[in-house]
Amino acid sequence: MAGAVTVHTNEEASKRPKHITESAPVKWLLIGIAVLFLALIVLLPLASVFVEAFKKGVGVYIDSITEPDALSALKLTLIVALIAVPVNTIFGVAAAWAISKFRFRGKNILITLIDLPFAVSPVISGLIYVLLFGAQGFLGPWLDERGIQIIFAVPGIVLATVFVTVPFVARELIPLMQAQGVQEEEAAASLGAKGWQIFWKVTLPNIKWGLLYGVILCNARAMGEFGAVSVVSGHIRGETNTLPLHIEILYNEYQFSASFAVASLLVMLAVVTLIVKSIVEWKSGQQKPVEKTV
């Protein structure tokens, strides 16, 4: 996900003069390889999720996704996404703004820090919170005295999810805002616009597609995160299980149809996300053929 590809459906590529394009067989060979590879590696396994999910009939399918533990997992997943995504959106915009519009010392360190969650393994992302907030951790005893439960409860899951999804929005916006420069904001300021006015009327309209794109990717990861959440969850059924964890539990309990049914829910959430993403790309490509790096 980190290296998500941005497609630019500029007509230019297909309009290139004949003598500098590859011959037809090469073109079809390449397309064929790409399609075959995706079919084998991506489509086939995804399709098998749905086949398995409906193996024992629609009744079992509906039962497994409406069962209280599954619903509570769905609810928790949505709650976590609803907190993690806005938090990271606000942070991402603020960080991107700071990095692209101001000059200050340690800017590169800040960028590196934003990238850090991509670089560390999710298990570590979970363990750092256990070390920090666990009963034997630095802050554990202090929190315990006050009856605050962070690890093995919803706050821990939210924290771990926020941690792994930090880079998405910021990473999407920084190159975009750097490319746009500060001229428009300066122009607005010289015409007497105030800070917030500049943000709402100039900056936000310029970055909105990139922002939306980052939010969508961030959301996809927030709902799908397994490793980090698994470490801090405590796996209490109906309480601290998110959808990905619930799928694993069902699978381990020989309830294959049920586990694939819940998995298909997650796949559908992902498909909706991808459709929205494509629309965003298409719309933004349509109106602004500015080259965007990811």
């Binding site: 907030f133 666990g134 009963a135 554990g140 405590g234």
Partner: peptide, 8 residues
């Protein structure tokens, strides 16, 4: 281990 780390 989880109980030691604070699983209630």
């Amino acid at each position: 281990r989880a109980v030691i780390d604070g699983l209630k």
